[in-house]
Each structure stands twice: as C-alpha cells, then as structure tokens.
Simulated assay, not measured.
Amino acid sequence: MILALRALGVGDLVTAVPALRGLRAAFYGEPLALAAPAWLTPLIELIGGVGRIVPTDGLTLHRWDIERPRLAVNLHGRGPESHRLLHAAAPESLWAFANAEADHLDGPEWTEEEHEVQRWCRLLRHYGVTCDETDMSLAVPDRSAPRGVTIVHPGAKVPARRWPADRFAAVARQLREAGHQVVITGSVSEQDLRVRVAERAGLPASALPSTGLAELAALVAHARLVISGDTGIAHLATAYGTPSVTLFGPMSPARWGPPDRPYHRSIWHGTRSEPGDRPGPDVHPALLAIGEREVLDAVTEVSAASHLMSKL
C-alpha cells in the first residue's frame, strides 16, 4: 500500500492533485490511501485513483488503523511533525522533504518561495516519479446545479484574506444590474456574511444556495464566473476551467495562484512574503488596496477571454 498525507483544506487538496496522480500512475495496481480530513471525502472521490481515505484531524491521529505501508509520502509539509506522524505508520520507505529534526535527510530541500503545485511535483521527481503539473482537473459531481451563474464567495478561513463585505456587495450589485445571475456562496459559519452581502447587493433569498462540498463543486463546474478571495473555491475554479477573478492579500499568487490562463485573473498589490510570515487578524493591506472597479475590469477581461476560447 502507498500512503500519502495531505491533512489540510480544499485548496490544499486541489493543488496536490498532480502529485497524487503521479503517485497513482507510478504505482498502478497498488492501493493508494490518502490521509486527509473526512469532510473532504466528496472532493477526494472526484480525483480518481484513491482507494482509501484515512480520516485525520490535522496531524492528530490516535493510531494508524491500516496495514504497514510499503511507502509513505508526505504531501503535507516540511516536517518534523508530519514526518513523525508518517514514521508512526512504520512504512518501509518515507518520501519527504529533508528535515534533520525528524531524522530524514534523503529528500530535497524545501523552497519557501515556490508554487504549491510545483512543490509537491518536485518532491516526487526527486524520487523518480513523473508529474504533470497541469493535470489539476476534477470529475464533475453527479449533482443538480444551475448553469451559468456568477458565484461571489466573500468568505475565507483566515480574516486577513477576506475582502470587505461592502465591496463584494457592490461588485455583486453591478454584475446583477449587468445581467449576471449572481449567487453568494459560503460555509455554514459564513451564513451571516452571505446574507449581508446578498442584502446589500439587492439579491433575493434564492441567491443563497445551500451547498455541501459536492454541490459546491458542481455549481463551480457549471458556473459562468467565480469571484473570491484566496480560498478553496478559487482552486475549484482552476480545476474546472471556470473563469475566475481571485483577490490575494497576505499570500502571493506566485505561490497559490491559478495557472497561466487568460480566463483566470489574480489581483494582488502585496509584496514578497518572508519565511515564517503568518496572516494577522485584520484584513491584509494588499486586499484593501483592491478597488471595486479593478475587480469589475478583471471580470470583463476574463469573460472576453473565455468567450474567445469557446470560439476556438
């Protein structure tokens, strides 16, 4: 059995898809298990090739309820905690970034300023596995979803990545007036934020769809456009090739942004992050520097690019 660890969120999972597919191809015929949060199961099923999900809560695991893996692959971080967690599964081999504190020295060195997709593919290439960094697509869930909606997603797990609600509402209102069918998405904990944005944009209650993870993926797959901060739904737009405008704050799009496609647009007015930087409790200044007109102009650009691509 091959065991991979990626105990993080939606965007983290999507950026690891090329590496997971590289593992699947390199060890075809052997079971591939993924240690990840159980709530990501609907999304993991859309990747294909993962035969077993080992539920984790971050790096907390009371014990590994699996057989001894032939190989464990750390797609989670640089260690040492994640390295030690995988060592506890007693694998015959461990593939991971070098970390002396975890007594793992044969892996490549960690590079802080590196795109997340490239990072994990580089790790696997170090061990002789081929990865296609463009292979980020997901299957479309078999769920009913409206087609052609414009999704505005104002939330983000980290406050520093949340563009002000009033600005999201202003953009949503102008898009509605321009003929877009706008919906406001978010998690259960973001319901008050969604309602506030919808009300200020003059949207009806029907613009607040109730979506689980599979339903959200289906909605994105069939959407006209996604507007969001640097959070998981932006990576779903990448996976489905849905035109998107993503607003970046504390983190550079060079590390977490979409691939270079004309129908994806990243907006960022920040500076290069430093190792150890962590988002604070307030909206990041780079996000506050983004104006509503800049977002609407970006919508026009990606919409035109998408229309052109559909004609080719």
Rank of each mutant, 00 (worst) to 15 (best):
A207F: 10
P259W: 03
L208M: 10
G280H: 05
V299D: 04
G280W: 10
P209I: 05
P253A: 01
P279S: 10
F248C: 02
G212D: 15
S228Y: 03
L296E: 04
L216E: 14
P243H: 10
R272N: 07
E294D: 11
A221Y: 08
P275G: 09
G212Q: 04
M251W: 13
S303Q: 15
P243M: 04
I290Q: 00
S210V: 13
T238P: 00
A218R: 14
I227F: 03
I290E: 03
D282H: 15
R196H: 13
G212H: 08
S244F: 03
R265S: 00
P285Y: 01
G270S: 07
S252F: 03
M251S: 15
I290D: 05
A207Y: 06
G280I: 12
R196I: 00
A305Y: 07
I233S: 02
R278A: 14
R255S: 09
S210M: 09
D297L: 14
P259A: 09
D230C: 09
S273R: 14
D192K: 12
A254W: 01
L208P: 09
R200Q: 15
L213N: 06
F248M: 02
E301S: 14
G257T: 02
A221R: 09
A286T: 02
E292D: 13
P204E: 06
D230Q: 00
L203M: 11
P259C: 07
T246M: 03
H222P: 03
Q191L: 14
L193K: 10
Q191M: 13
A239C: 09
G270M: 08
V220T: 11
I227N: 00
G291F: 02
R194C: 15
D192R: 15
Y263A: 05
E274A: 12
T238E: 12
T271K: 13
E292V: 15
A198S: 13
A304W: 04
Y240K: 09
L208K: 12
